Amino acid sequence: MILNAQEGIQVVGEAANGAEAVSKATQLDPGVVLMDIRMPVMDGVEATDRICRSTRAKVLVLTMYDIDEYVYDALRAGASGFLLKDVRRNELVDAVRLVHDGEALLAPSVTRRLITDLVRRGAARPDLTQRLAELTDRETLTLRHLARGLSNAEIASAMVVSQHTVKTHVSNLLTKLDLRDRVQAVVFAYESGLIAPGIG
């Protein structure tokens, strides 16, 4: 009801469980899927993984469970955003629009937990570290800024370039690293060892 009442947003389908969500996402080709985590038949993490692999839809996870394993698994599965169910209506609507437009969105508490979890998991993965060599120096610097949570405008200011140039760098690094969006880029930056908390 909240989303249908918004101009420019149309709810094209609803699903009672994860398997139905995958089926409907495949049939209806939505721009954004609003996904719960705990569901019967198939949980939200597996459903997110299947949707991200087989459709163009961006997945925004909305759940009451602020638990590390769910956060991390959902993001690894390809989710572009993760919000808790206590989010305000206008924030939910804004989140759907942002994710649709290719941005990524994480609740602040989720970002802290994600970083803590990535650090706890230990050493950088060599396979990811090698992939960093594919980036130019400017793309690598852009990735560092992304991982620190900077917006395109803030990155442009820090690098003394235009926002258009930043968007080009972001697009290029996502393509080279085969990543879906900015959230995946943040995960990659930490897992590859490019950046760690307090080091930028």
Rank of each mutant, 00 (worst) to 15 (best):
A185R: 01
P108D: 05
T48G: 05
L98Y: 12
E103H: 13
V59M: 03
V71C: 06
P30C: 09
A156W: 00
Q163K: 12
V12N: 07
L83D: 03
N17S: 06
A153L: 11
A133C: 06
A133S: 13
I67H: 12
A124F: 04
V186E: 08
F188D: 00
Y65T: 09
V119D: 07
L150Q: 08
D49H: 14
T129M: 10
R182Q: 10
R53T: 12
A123C: 08
L173K: 03
V99D: 11
I67N: 10
Y72I: 12
V12K: 05
V161A: 08
V45K: 01
T142E: 00
S157Y: 09
R50W: 09
D181C: 03
S171A: 13
G149E: 01
D49N: 14
R125P: 06
A156K: 00
R89S: 15
D73R: 12
I51W: 06
V160P: 03
L143S: 02
T175Q: 11
L128W: 08
N172A: 11
T116R: 14
V170H: 02
D68L: 08
A95H: 05
T129V: 11
V59K: 03
P197F: 05
D36A: 02
H145N: 09
V99L: 07
A153R: 13
S54W: 09
P40M: 04
T111D: 12
L179N: 05
Y190Q: 01
A158G: 03
T142C: 04
G102V: 04
L92S: 08
E91Y: 10
L3T: 11
A47K: 00
K85C: 00
A79V: 04
T140S: 12
Q6T: 11
R50D: 13
E134W: 12
V99P: 10
Y65S: 08
V93F: 04
A15G: 10
V93Q: 06
G18N: 02
A74M: 06
L28V: 10
G149Q: 00
E20T: 12
H169Q: 03
A79I: 03
S80C: 10
V22N: 06
L177C: 04
E14F: 13
A57H: 03
R88T: 13
D117Q: 14
R182A: 11
N4V: 09
F188G: 01
V61K: 03
S162C: 00
R180V: 11
G81K: 01
Q163Y: 07
R182L: 07
P30V: 12
S171R: 13
G78F: 00
T55P: 03
P40A: 05
S54A: 14
G13M: 00
L83V: 01
R113V: 09
R88C: 08
G149D: 01
A74Q: 07
Q27T: 15
I115A: 07
N90G: 12
D43Q: 01
H164D: 15
D73L: 07
T116K: 14
L177W: 04
I37L: 15
R121Y: 07
E14A: 12
A5S: 14
V33C: 06
V11Q: 07
E7R: 13
L75T: 06
M64V: 10
D29L: 15
R180S: 13
I199N: 15
G149S: 02
A95G: 09
A25R: 03
S80T: 11
D43Y: 02
P126C: 00
R88P: 02
L177A: 05
P30L: 08
V11Y: 07
V166T: 04
L60C: 02
D127S: 10
P197T: 08
D178G: 09
